[in-house]
Structure formats: structure tokens, C-alpha cells
Design a protein around this nucleic acid. Structure first.
Lengths: 114, 114
DNA sequence: TTAACATGCAACCAGGAGGTTACACGTAAT
DNA sequence: ATTACGTGTAACCTCCTGGTTGCATGTTAA
């Protein structure tokens, strides 16, 4: 594995869990809250949604597993914060795909013109 | 709904199904195949994966539902092609999120400096 | 016209995802 | 010291997802 590959997963297949984590309306809502509302606690977050605190905890665990959020304890409460790095990864995956597409289009154009 | 909103869904929540469609390794593989390998038929595609043709069909249906692929009949076979538009949408959703994050950081910085 | 091929459709199955309720436990506030 | 609060854990439920097999149907080729 090269250094470039170590920085962010090379294979597109590795992006699947990341996109899966983004593929839920509640989780996207949580990300937006943490983005714009700053670090928040679980009970605070669950006040903004129609599901129980425990359900929100599960969603946050999924986001944490994907590296999209991070948590830290402070006294009896746990603070959740947004983690922008992995979002950049997802961004790059999409760009890689569309680049591949553009290359294919280029090949097609070259073929047609022959 | 403004014209800009009509072009691509406004609410981030609407992005969930799109990301969910991307959140599966097999489906990402299909997209890559269709991107770089050009339009392909179902049986042709299923040759590249370890699952049955019917399973691949289901995945293609999911991708089509999300607007990521398109299909057309030609004789007895159905040709599947990549559809780059929605990928651009996903791209924009991610950018919107990170922009929101940057704005929040800016607010924090302004607050600290006061 | 028959045989081979590509697809469509339906039934079915196992496991995981998203949700709930109930309760235990540590920490803060009065 | 007691009460209130925030969280963690566990059991449970339902529904969807990803997968299978079997068979029917339409289309091309020999």
C-alpha cells in the first residue's frame, strides 16, 4: 500500500460503509445539527427528532463508526462533535467516479472520430 | 419552490436515498463497471460479481430508483447505462454540508476573538 | 420449428437495521 | 443525603434488504 493509499482508502468498495452511514435521513439531520449547532449532547440532540434518545445514540454510533463524528466525555454527559475529514473522503470518491466517467467519454469520442 | 430548488432537491434529507443507493459495495462496483466499461447488459454485468443475475437486477433497480443508472430495451436484452447527473447532486450535498461547517467555524472564531 | 438465450417474476429465507421499553448506574445539584 | 439528571445496557419487535431458487415468457439463431 502506497502512502497515497494510506491517506484515504483506495478502492471504491471501501467507500460503501461511508455512504451507507450517510444514507439515512435522521443521520443526515444529526450531521447538520452538529455542523451548524456546534457540539451537542445526546439528549439535547434527541430533542430535535421524533425518535427516542436510545435510537439517536445508535445513529451516532453508526456515524462514529464511519468516522463522521467523534465523542468525548465531560462529567456525566457525552459531547458529540462533527468530524469533517471523512466527508472529504466521500467527496473524493465521487470525484474519482465522475473522472472515470469522463475518461470513458473521452475514449468513446476518440473511437467515434476514427 | 424556486427554480434553483427545482434543479436539485433542497433539503439535505432528500439526499438520504441517494447516499443509501451508493452505500453498498456491489452497487458501487456496478457503477464503476458502467462508468468505465460502457453500457452493459444484466447477464454481462452479473458475470463480474459473485451473486446471481437476479440479485444484480435488484441492485440495478435500486440504482435506477436513485437516478444513478438508466435502462433501455434492445431486442431481447436490456442495456444499462450510467447516469452522471445525480452524482453531481450528491457532490453538491456534501459541499453544502462542509460549507455549513465552515460557516460554523467562522462564527466560533469570531466569538473567540471578541 | 426448435433450441438456446436474456430477461421477468414470484416465493421464500436469514440477518440486520431502526425502533421501542425498561431498568441500572454514575454524576450533579439542592 | 437525597433527588434529579444524563447516560449505558439489554431485550425485544417489525420490517426491509440482500440473497437464493424455480419457472414463465419473449426473442434470436440454427
Amino acid at each position: 500500500m502506497s502512502r497515497a493509499e494510506a491517506l484515504s482508502p483506495t478502492r471504491l468498495k471501501d467507500a460503501a460503509p461511508l455512504f451507507a452511514a450517510l444514507g439515512d435521513a435522521t443521520r443526515l439531520g444529526l450531521l447538520v445539527s452538529l455542523c451548524s449547532g456546534g457540539p451537542l449532547t445526546v439528549t439535547r440532540l434527541s430533542g430535535q427528532f421524533d425518535v427516542s434518545r436510545q435510537a439517536i445514540t445508535k445513529h451516532l454510533d453508526v456515524l462514529a463508526e464511519a468516522g463522521l463524528v467523534k465523542s468525548s466525555r465531560r462529567g456525566r454527559e457525552r459531547i458529540w462533535t462533527f468530524e469533517p475529514k471523512r466527508l472529504e473522503d466521500a467527496h473524493q470518491y465521487l470525484e474519482r467516479l465522475s473522472r472515470e466517467w469522463d475518461v470513458a467519454l473521452g475514449r468513446l469520442k476518440a473511437f467515434v472520430e476514427t
